[in-house]
Design a protein around this nucleic acid. Structure first.
Lengths: 125, 125, 125, 125
DNA sequence: GTGGTCTAGACCACC
DNA sequence: GTGGTCTAGACCACG
């Protein structure tokens, strides 16, 4: 489910965080289901438990998971998470559009990219 | 012209590189004009000359500037730079659109963002 | 394995880069094997860690190695590297042949050099 | 006759040296003919006289020219120069062939390069 | 004066 | 422990 890319320049814990976020947002990991324990996941991935510990801490800080002492870590409800992720993406879009405009990319070029990305289905909705 | 943000997690030299790239791509710094000397810019920004040296080296490596020992550093012609920067931005757009689609942002939401960014002028061109 | 020549006019970091490239291309250093740490190699060669750091950064930029914070630096797969190195050498050959021709060296003299270099084995293949 | 490339990373004096060597070896500048004065050449190329001074000194050191106090600088006879340049080139060829062999370039590939460089004329001499 | 290299020593993030 | 960034200060080559 999680694959570490050692050639990736980003720290391992960040890769773990991002991958778990992704699984949560896509609904693969369902709300209130339990995450593997720090030790187990560390063994599975053959990495240091401290690294998983840090990833889980980060995920908890951002509200993606919650921990119960002595029982383990669990997935949070994802409604608000999806909402804030959407907002984050739209904000990134705004920045990117600004940058694109400044360098001379046209409105049509961007709209074409959007249409490409969404395929032709429902183009006239 | 250049502002260092010490709260930014990115290294200083990278901030300097990005800012100068921006000034070059926007045409503020014209081809063959001279950049401030390593030492002067370092003093202006109150940072170590080595850090500027590194930023200039990076810019030279990417073809944004050229440096001549004993003479100084100068802006390169920027035709191809703008082109490759455009390609980079369009590639980022593709990634962002994919991510947006996956999380449930609609085609229309993105197109609206594009239209917002470009203002209402020429919307029906 | 690596020898610094202080009489060489080229900078130390460049000598280190070239030597390691050589070891990689010849297959002495195998893909995914670990390089000595920045500090260790610096001590071995009695030079400053920053100089090694710079050499490693250069090697990473060219795709010869990859470095991971907290873990170390490792050899990249070398297929494409050998290919591009071959192209580089053949290009140098073209230049050198042109220069040789201009100054009056004959075709036969060069071909003899090639045969000398390859030994007499298989000369008539 | 001489063109300075400011974008060339090599020092200016070196560019001047190389260009004059080339003109001498090709016979464009004939033995015992006079070179332009340091000042004149400096003015022609719009560069610092010190730079030309250094280039001439270098050329004299290598035996390409000789200076007569109060009269100027003159081209040396070029027989031995051509000879030693040939040797230099052949030595470079030896190195390059060695390098090529080590990385897996075949004898035939190199011989083809030589034949390409010399064109088809006289191939069977 | 200019850019470029190197050293010594510090601090950070990561594992 | 690892790599990466930054500072301070020195020296060199070049114009």
């Amino acid at each position: 489910m999680i694959i570490i890319d050692y050639k990736d320049r980003r720290p391992i814990y960040e890769q773990v965080v991002e991958r778990i976020q992704e699984l949560i947002l896509k609904g693969v990991l369902e709300p209130d289901s339990q995450l593997p324990s720090v030790r187990n996941l560390a063994m599975d991935l053959s990495i240091n438990p401290n690294t998983i510990q840090r990833a889980y801490a980060e995920l908890e800080r951002c509200g993606y998971i919650y921990s119960v002492k002595g029982r383990g870590s669990f997935i949070s409800a994802n409604h608000h998470l999806i909402q804030s992720k959407k907002e984050e993406i739209l904000e990134n879009a705004t920045k990117l559009i600004k940058e694109a405009k400044e360098i001379g990319i046209t409105r049509d070029q961007l709209i074409n990219k959007v249409n490409e990305g969404f395929g032709e289905e429902g183009k006239d909705d």
